[in-house]
Design a protein around this nucleic acid. Structure first.
Lengths: 339, 339
DNA sequence: GACGAGTATGAAAACGTTTGCGGAACAGTG
DNA sequence: CACTGTTCCGCAAACGTTTTCATACTCGTC
């Protein structure tokens, strides 16, 4: 029921195999340095004793933990689930284990967690971190970090190219006849939010669409409720939400208020465009038109980058996927229609 | 950009403070053993050098890592998110860090991950593990384990009491006039599934409701699609799904096929009852009637149990919440109606 | 038959802590 | 003053590995 019964040490297998601990270590880590026959014997003895090298001792002498940390703002946000899974899947058949933590979208928690992790990992993957650039640099000084959805000179970052998706979305909405739209802003200190807003602004300006800013809102379903009423009050015919959760909140609330989605011939109604393409987005009624993010590519790229930074000679790890893979794109479904 | 620049060791602060390493260690860990003044000086020096004890060295000598592992079947299953958050929140202001891993609902992966974690943690919280009892015992022999949603003699388990919720659900459906219902089974080797099915069976038998078994299905939205068609073919007026994801899949597919939810006066239609009360459940149209699980209580109890097993003298950790807290209960929303 | 080049192995140091043991200083007691 | 007890602190061992260095042995080669 507990971790007692003194696990077999390297010395135990050494004496069982009639060799020195050094030889056991070599047999395990650098096979080419030991005689094939003794190696076989050592391995057999190790197997017999159920020998597992003590991680702490290895870490101590090697100066590395074989752990990597992964910090995301919110596990419950379905956008991050595939990201997490991607990273975990990458490291699964690696000697690394991954520490996952969730900051609850809170910057202070994020910093605390990052500090706590630094001591236990070789590298830290920060997904959409909100902390200040200074903090980020401080962390990056202490360990290897890779950023996703956030730029910084302190560490390499994996980014999506928001432009194509945003451009397609605006073109789509413009083609449907919308001329006055709203943007539901996400957290103010979020890099994603600023980028999305920027490209949206550019695309709208190019096409002569008037853009109303609302928010900021937390990227949660319930914040979409709040947003919905403001959207309706703002007198726009279409709305771009910071992300799908907010969009779905809007959809739910707007529908409940009897406003048709998408717009109806009579001029009433609202078109909604989300962002992320979370699984739920295709399950609603009507299904959500949204800008899809190549999250698998992003997570794999982040993991691979980390891996190759930690083990420069790693066998896996294509350095970086071609930029094209990271492009966003519009998925037209049921929540957008002609005005 | 990397983890170099040789962090300050305990020796460095010792020599700066003009004491021996032992004294520094004691000043940090057992304040009562050192003179107040020297302690102050040591602490100040440690602070000045930004000293952080080397975790690996501590682990090596203490034989404990101050890490706990948490393994769940699927992060993307929104039922687990609150569970994870609960555990993480509990350990946040503790000296423990938590390793989270996701098995992708795969037993082999689960075993692999558990094995990998055993070397890196002091204890393992297994949420709804699918592995065999034998395996479970093997793991429990190597480290401290706490189970959630799974019984075993090998380790303490935190369970929900499915009975009240199931009973309420059946009573509700019975009151609405349903007499022939289906159960959409979850994974065959899932303890939750067996329990849910059992109590459901009993409650239905008591009230003279005929119960049709369908499945098993994976607990995913898309499996709900598949299930929906079988449900419709089975000629039942109400269905109990293994969990909310499946229920929502059914809802989506059934609605798409033009079958009203809930039942209409004419005799057509279907009533749907889910299980878990995931956030999405209240967001659909109509919102899902479901059996809510006290997931916060379960996760906190699991974490607290682990904590008190690891540090018997822990200051926090109320041993176990009263059993009542762990009872499930029915949430009547929009997907159930009179037949 | 000595020598150089490999090849295979062991001894020991090192990694950074914690902690048992003992010693020094000091105060209190007879 | 001799003693006992306390308080504070340093020495050194120990934790389980990896790796450097040295050594012993085996082969060919001149």
């Amino acid at each position: 029921m507990s971790a007692d019964s003194t696990r077999a040490s390297i010395r135990a297998v050494a004496s069982l195999a009639g060799v020195s601990p050094s030889t056991v270590s070599r047999a395990l880590n650098s096979p080419e340095l030991v005689n094939a026959e003794t190696r076989r014997r050592v391995l057999e003895c190790a197997e017999r004793l159920g020998y597992q090298p003590n991680r702490a001792a290895q870490s101590l002498v090697l100066g590395r933990t074989r752990n990597v940390g992964l910090i995301v703002p919110d596990i419950a946000n379905p956008f991050f689930a595939p990201f997490i899974k991607g990273v975990e899947a990458y490291f699964r058949d690696t000697e690394y284990a991954v520490f996952l933590a969730d900051t609850d979208e809170d910057t202070a928690t994020e910093v605390r967690l990052a500090e706590a992790m630094v001591e236990r990992v070789d590298g830290l993957i920060l997904c959409a971190p909100r902390m200040s650039g200074t903090r980020l640099r401080a962390i990056a000084a202490k360990t290897t970090v890779v950023l996703a959805n956030r730029t910084s000179r302190a560490a390499p970052s994996i980014l999506q190219d928001f432009q194509p998706g945003m451009d397609q979305a605006v073109a789509h909405v413009h083609a449907l006849g919308h001329r006055r739209c709203a943007y539901l802003s996400g957290p103010a200190n979020s890099w994603s939010n600023r980028r999305r807003r920027r490209f949206l602004g550019v695309a709208c300006a190019e096409r002569g669409i008037e853009l109303v800013d609302l928010g900021p809102y937390e990227p949660r379903f319930t914040d979409g409720y709040r947003a919905a009423d403001e959207v309706l009050a703002a007198g726009v015919s279409a709305v771009f939400a910071y992300n799908d959760l907010v969009a779905l909140g809007v959809l739910s609330r707007v529908t409940a208020r009897g406003v048709p989605v998408p717009n109806e011939p009579g001029g009433r109604g609202l078109s909604i465009v989300g962002f992320d393409d979370i699984p739920m987005a295709s399950m609603t009624n009507p299904p959500l038109t949204t800008v899809a993010i190549p999250v698998d590519a992003v997570s794999r790229a982040a993991a691979a980058t980390m891996h190759s930074m930690l083990d420069p000679g790693a066998p896996k790890a294509p350095p970086l996927p071609p930029a094209a893979e990271l492009a966003t794109r519009l998925l037209i479904r049921g929540t957008t229609g002609p005005v």
